[in-house]
Design a protein around this nucleic acid. Sequence first.
DNA 1: TTGGAAGCTGAACACTTGTATTGGAGGCAC
DNA 2: GTGCCTCCAATACAAGTGTTCAGCTTCCAA
Lengths: 215, 215
Amino acid sequence: MAGDEDLTARARIRDAALEQFAAHGVKGTTIRGVAEAAGVSPGLVQHHFGSKAGLRAACDEYAIEALVTNKKKALAGGMGDPGFLALAMRTGIPVQRYLARALVDGSPGAARFFDEAVAFSEEILAEPGSILNRPTTSDLRAYAAVLTTMSFGVLVLHEHLHRSLGADPLTMEGYPRLGRAMFDILTDDLLPAELVEQARAAMDRLPGDEGEPDS
Amino acid sequence: MAGDEDLTARARIRDAALEQFAAHGVKGTTIRGVAEAAGVSPGLVQHHFGSKAGLRAACDEYAIEALVTNKKKALAGGMGDPGFLALAMRTGIPVQRYLARALVDGSPGAARFFDEAVAFSEEILAEPGSILNRPTTSDLRAYAAVLTTMSFGVLVLHEHLHRSLGADPLTMEGYPRLGRAMFDILTDDLLPAELVEQARAAMDRLPGDEGEPDS
DNA sequence: TTGGAAGCTGAACACTTGTATTGGAGGCAC
DNA sequence: GTGCCTCCAATACAAGTGTTCAGCTTCCAA
């Protein structure tokens, strides 16, 4: 927001688009809206990105690149983190919000991003010398996928969490409550053993399920 | 899909709209598209619902009502469930998908729905004689909110889970893997005690956080 | 039979959308 | 200066949008 004038017009357009896409979705944002937010003419958006699809592709690329860079930094910094969580905390908020929305709107980049996050999770979970305890599951892939989904879910629905908690969990003010709650949930034995057994048995009786297929 | 012809045109329009809203978002669905899917003329949509906003409001109302009805049935049936989860499984898939999308697109109905789900979760968690173990947290509200968010997150991002797992977790074929993974995750002590302590301490050092505010 | 209300259609209107085009301003090599 | 490039604004246009409206059927009570 501050110091926007330092950026090139192209960068300002990209940033504005990132924000608009995140806030209103792909269909909901207009070239004209992005142009106005960036303080340029609609024509310039076309000039730099060719089309709305091109603009979105540029946002995808930028967001993923920003996230990868950050991930490398986080890992190099040596902070042991439970997969996505700590990473997400350190990454630019606009980028996160953009990816969260892209995940719902269905961009190819976001899908790739999600899949990589799952693979990364699975890798960490399987690692013998991991910081994490070894998960007790016979279906590591599903374990990783669901864990990833839950993490991203918090991102995607942060607006509702904001309303419910009174502070945006994606900001420094709101994050601690979210983080503590997640730790509590992941640490707690919320489900009584009998209930779990009962539910597992029930699911075993469901049709169309034969063990855990995997590639 | 089958036997649609039995429904009144109004109901067919509503069902088609529910599906289109879920699939393409509010901005992405058109009156003409809904009309075509329902096999009626665009004019009839206007006739029955007045406007696109009216159509959406009707979908909101219908979806929530369908869910509430189902919840009552589930509770009356006496199946102890961990809040939303089992409930969601028994509710109509289109309704779920619609609400998931509405949660992201931001409809008043969906927001209310989310808040009620949090309240319901909190209630069950606090209940002394609950089927669940008592959660160990000093911030029950955040606990319930995050738990709810995670559950809904699975719903919102089910498309990606589908891609990652090879089967839609919202169908009978795909659900067991999702369910088992969720149980594993909620049951596991994934995070080592030292790591949790360390992270909690780190969050205590964050600025802008004074205990847990509550209403 | 008649009248009117309800269900329903298709065309038309006003507006927004993405995109294409034209052309101007400012720097830079020659 | 001249030509040429990039950056940029303004306008124009075709497609798609929500919405309106006149008129058609169908049904049912009086």
